[in-house]
């Protein structure tokens, strides 16, 4: 079992997201994350799909996606150099002065932005890799248990321009 990434170009039409999601569920493949958005061509949507699977299942996933009429192109992003980021918002509530200072330090070290705050609450915005966002959530959870609210945007990925190996 291994983490995989697929970049999928599909027709930008009603029902296509359901079709793709339904294809995964009907074949009992599990999606870890999926993001969708319009591309520079309004008739095409682009999806970034993360999943964990063995080699054989992953081959099937790619073939099944490819045979769908609505799918224009399937690109395997697992082994090629890409830039991949996920947006994460974390709201920390009931903060005192010391808490706020600690949050600002964390933001500084982890490269997050303090997007908004008021007297007791701080909102952090992090645009990082999925793994780094996991680390930030874990840290904030341990520093401020039961006081954080998390929303994650899922990953978007694009092929690297200069890098030729996947390091």
């Amino acid at each position: 079992m291994k983490k995989r990434w697929i970049c999928l170009f599909v027709e930008n039409q009603i029902g296509v997201l359901t079709k793709i999601a339904g294809l995964f569920s009907s074949k009992a493949y599990n999606i870890d994350s999926i993001t969708v958005g319009e591309t520079e061509d309004q008739t095409i949507s682009r999806m970034t799909i993360g999943l964990t699977s063995d080699d054989q299942t992953f081959e099937q996933v790619k073939k099944q996606l490819n045979r769908s009429v609505e799918v224009i192109k399937v690109v395997d992003y697992t082994e090629i150099p890409t830039h991949m980021k996920e947006i994460l918002f974390v709201k920390i509530s009931s903060c005192n002065r010391e808490d706020k200072e600690e949050i600002f330090r964390i933001a500084n070290v982890f490269g997050c932005t303090v997007t908004d705050y008021d007297k007791n609450t701080v909102l952090l915005e992090c645009t990082q890799t999925e793994g780094k966002n996991n680390d930030i959530i874990r840290l904030l959870q341990s520093c401020f248990p039961n006081r954080i609210e998390v929303v994650r945007g899922g990953n978007v990925a694009i092929e690297a321009v200069s890098r030729k190996d996947n390091s």
Partner: peptide
């Protein structure tokens, strides 16, 4: 004819 049928 269906590549998805192969090695499934």
């Amino acid at each position: 004819i269906d590549s998805a049928s192969i090695s499934r």
